[in-house]
Design a protein around this nucleic acid. Structure first.
Length: 857
DNA sequence: GTGCATCATCCAC
DNA sequence: CTCGGACAAATTCGG
DNA sequence: CCGAATTTGTCCGAGGTGGATGATGCAC
């Protein structure tokens, strides 16, 4: 064996130091270097090798940025070592770490406080003056108020870039910004070969302007469009499904965003002008839904049933359909091809939008014995009733798959709805120069409204009923209807965080590894709980629903809080890993039968006593949060957070959080509003595995692949990966992988791997029965892959027998880092290393849970 | 028919 | 959940 | 000061592991 040196370059710049440590850790074991980076170690107290790793990890965390810098910081294990103590020292200095429960005062006085505030607004280089300068309220009032209340209005008059759009410049006012120390920073940074620099002031993004050249061009077209003319049906008559299919085809033909929305807008206008009753079913079809998410109604259709249906309509056998679909990457084209021959048979009446939608709803209701046959029959009927042109049958298939794949999804739909409604019902105006901003405003309003009340059942009628600017009055946030969750944007290091939040006051929270839970309490005390995707989870968490009333402060009448539900071990008083939470029953759970207990970590308050808090700054929402509930260990606690601007300290807090079993941190701007459904820069997530050169990586061998679908047609869409067990001379699968590739690389790899195709798997491959790749490869190619975590796998075989007697180990969130031309397959990561990493993770989880910060002193 | 294994779908991350 | 690509808007750069 | 070049924000669609649930299929 003796995979010698191999990686001289391994981890080249970023991981040099780490490498040494690993090697040390594995006591010089031959291929030690293939494990690039084990987890950040457990508590430092456990000295030894673990400690060493932790230290280096810490060091690189903190710098994170320029690769070279990291490298030098970590290059020698020594240096890294002495970095550690100071970290510990710093820990408490001058900042507050609040662990749960504590009181509101504490919170209140820390946060907004004058001093930090001005510190942040003052030096403001407000580099994005244009940014929040906001547009005339036009139709978009709600965001408006929100934006301005979040920040001191700091508009900068000059620079109304949106030349022609007067509306966009209206509101501007004085400019508060001063010159450019930002520039200096930038230069300094870029001198250090930093990729790009900085910028970005705080919250309240675009929305204000958002009208560019292409939007203006579009407005001109819209001003001229005659809605009714495209209709081939009589006013009031059901709109033929073919009309929708044609629209899809047109949209599919372009990738230009404005063009897509224009096509959609025109089509929707036509429907509004002729048969407005069909707008709702149209919207549902476009939204790939049959009911609002929280209604819990699903189609229950997958490729398997679709293939059966296609088979029964075309007479082809299922297997051939399946194979062709795998190769062509598109089931829908098969249905279309068949249609090309047949067209409408006999006296079948053609599909209409409403008939298709009605059938979808019927399908969703079917359950029980023979339900699949029943569904198949309905689908077959839809297919036979599809016309010949326009790819109708294909779109039926795609709609049922829930993947239209034409470059239009929910956000695009909302824009189309907004524009169409505005133009058909209230535009009035021909002055195109003001039209563009008004359309933009309408779109923003509709998006906002929908994110606060994601129900087309409410939105569409309201859209047809009155002016868009009145929407927020009729369709609004209320307990009992989930609001779309605000999401955090990934960042690649502490320094990036600091860049983005330069002159913003921010706070840092633990990122718990559980499940998002949006808890609603209405005026009657009724509790409902929603998932990140707005599914109703109340049936899964009756225990949470039951305990809520006891947690509420006396004067709380209604409330919506944003939380993370985390598995909880009541005996040990510690949190448990996500994998445990996922084993919890989901339906018809009764409080008495619960196997996996759960603790809620609350981190935001969105609604209190009849009032929406969305437009309030985080500081206020936090006050509301701690003021409205009382923490109880093991039941409900407030997410641990701290407020600090110090790089080192942030890095330290990140490590702390990981040691406490967290996924990392969420960094939040303190004066930002809650922006539903946005992946806002106001919330940044910081996970150790995002950092370059940090996190678990593996060197794996490619032994199989699957044909890609959709835009990956013609190349492999995913690959099967294995590690190498040199004792038994086996390649054991550890994961599939399908992300981290550029399109170009995908092509290259397809060609490269095709040279290693073999007819049958090698006898020395070990894989899961239900994970048989479509193509096998001889073990030749080695890649470096990164993951967030390791898990015991029911399918994969890596390190089988080492941790679990039969099961192997797999990885969470695998992605390609790079190909490793310099490594041979026998230098891949070994089972021992995988097992070691897994064990370390478990060990860590044993000491985690509670106070992670009581270790020093 | 009942019980058990497997497949398909959905949903969390 | 992670990632990359395409667009459009916003911002910076260069003449 | 204006147009070109570059950066940022948004949206979309490829793809991952794993567990519960419900339907189906097979053995008895």
């Amino acid at each position: 064996m003796a995979p010698k040196r191999s990686s001289t370059a391994l981890n080249s710049a970023s991981g040099g130091g780490k490498q040494q440590n690993i090697a040390k850790f594995f006591g010089g074991k031959t291929n030690a270097d293939s494990v690039n980076t084990p987890k950040i170690g457990a508590q430092a107290s456990t000295s030894g090798s673990t400690g060493v790793q932790k230290k280096t990890a810490v060091a690189s965390l903190q710098t994170s940025r320029p690769v070279a810098e990291v490298a030098s910081a970590t290059f020698s294990g020594r240096e890294a070592v002495h970095a550690q103590p100071q970290l510990k020292r710093l820990r408490k200095a001058g900042t507050v770490t609040q662990t749960a429960a504590t009181d509101a005062e504490d919170l209140a006085d820390r946060s907004p406080s004058p001093s930090p505030r001005q510190e942040n607004t003052t030096p403001a280089k407000s580099k994005s003056p244009a940014k929040r300068k906001s547009r005339t309220p036009a139709a978009g009032s709600p965001e408006e108020t929100k934006a301005t209340s979040a920040h001191p209005p700091s508009p900068a008059g000059r620079r109304p870039q949106m030349a022609t759009s007067p509306a966009a410049t209206d509101l501007t006012g004085s400019s508060a910004d001063d010159e450019g120390q930002a520039d200096r920073d930038d230069e300094a940074a870029s001198n250090k070969r930093r990729k790009k620099a900085v910028l970005k002031a705080p919250a309240s993004t675009a929305k204000v302007a958002g009208v560019g050249k292409s939007a203006l061009a579009a407005a001109e077209l819209h001003a001229k469009y005659e809605a009714g003319q495209a209709a081939t049906w009589e006013a009031g008559a059901p709109v033929p499904f073919a009309f929708l299919a044609q629209t899809f085809t047109a949209i599919d033909a372009t990738t230009k965003r404005t063009e897509i929305t224009n096509i959609l807008t025109d089509a929707l206008r036509t429907i509004i002008a002729t048969t407005p009753d069909d707008l709702l079913p149209t919207a549902y079809l476009l939204n790939n839904r049959v009911a609002p998410a929280h209604a819990g109604v699903e189609l229950g259709i997958g490729d398997a049933i679709l293939i059966k249906a296609i088979s029964s309509v075309t007479g082809r056998n299922e297997k051939s359909i399946k194979e062709e679909a795998a190769k062509s990457g598109d089931l829908s084209s098969i249905a279309n091809a068949a249609k090309g021959k047949q067209g409408l048979i006999g006296k079948v009446t053609a599909n209409t939008i409403r008939s298709v939608f009605k059938t979808f709803r019927d399908i969703a209701k079917i359950e029980g014995n023979k339900s699949q046959d029943h569904k198949k029959a309905l689908i077959s009927k839809l297919l036979t009733a599809s016309g010949k042109g326009s790819n109708e049958a294909g779109y039926i298939i795609r709609l049922l798959q829930g993947k239209l794949r034409i470059g239009l999804q929910e956000q695009g739909l909302l824009v189309g709805l907004a524009q169409a409604a505005f133009l058909e019902r209230e535009s009035a105006g021909r002055d195109t120069s003001s039209l563009a901003p008004r359309l933009e405003a309408a779109a923003q309003t509709v998006k906002q409204v929908f994110s606060e009340c994601p129900s087309l059942d409410e939105l569409v009628p309201a859209l047809l009923g009155g002016p868009i600017k009145d929407l927020p009055k009729s369709v609004r946030f209320k307990p009992g209807v989930p609001i779309k969750a605000m999401l955090a944007k990934p960042t690649n290091g502490v320094t990036e965080v600091l860049d983005k939040f330069q002159d913003t006051q921010f706070t840092v929270e633990y990122k718990y590894d559980g499940e998002r839970a949006q808890v609603h309490v209405d005026e009657r005390g009724h509790v409902t709980i929603y998932s990140r995707n707005s599914e109703d989870m109340t049936g899964k968490y009756p225990d949470l629903a039951q305990r809520m009333p006891d947690l509420l402060a006396p004067d709380v009448k209604s409330l919506v809080v944003d939380c993370e539900a985390v598995a909880w071990d009541p005996k040990e008083g510690k949190i448990r890993p996500f994998q445990v939470l996922s084993t919890r029953k989901r339906k018809d759970v009764t409080v008495g039968s619960i196997q996996v207990q759960v603790v809620l970590f609350a981190f935001d308050c969105l609604f209190l006593n009849g009032e929406s808090l969305l437009s309030k700054p985080l500081t206020e929402r936090r006050e509301a949060l701690v003021g409205s509930m009382t923490a109880k260990p093991g039941q409900m606690e407030f997410a641990t957070f701290k407020t600090s601007h110090d790089v080192e300290e942030l890095g330290n807090f990140l490590n702390e959080s990981v040691a406490a079993g967290m996924e990392g941190l969420i960094v939040k701007s303190l004066d930002s509003t809650y922006e539903p459904s946005k992946r806002s820069v106001n919330w940044l997530k910081l996970k150790k595995d995002y950092l370059e050169g940090v996190g678990d990586t593996f060197d794996v061998v490619v032994i199989g692949a699957w044909h890609g679908r959709g835009k990956r047609t013609g190349v492999y869409g995913s690959y099967l990966l294995a590690i190498y067990d040199d004792e038994n001379e086996q390649f054991q699968t550890i994961s599939k992988i399908g992300t981290g590739f550029s399109e170009e690389l995908l092509k290259t790899l397809h060609g490269q791997l095709n040279e290693h195709v073999i007819d049958a798997p090698r006898t020395y491959y070990r894989w899961g029965e239900s994970l048989v790749p479509e193509v096998w490869f001889d073990a030749q190619v080695v890649w470096e892959v990164k993951a967030a975590d390791l898990s015991i796998s029911p399918l994969h075989k890596a390190a089988a027998g080492l941790v679990d007697p039969t099961k192997g180990i797999s990885i969470r969130f695998p992605r390609l880092v790079k190909t490793r031309e310099d490594k041979s397959p026998d230098q891949a990561t070994s089972p021992e290393q995988v097992a070691e990493m897994y064990n370390k993770q478990v060990l860590l989880s044993k000491t985690k849970g509670k106070a992670a910060d009581d270790d020093d002193d």
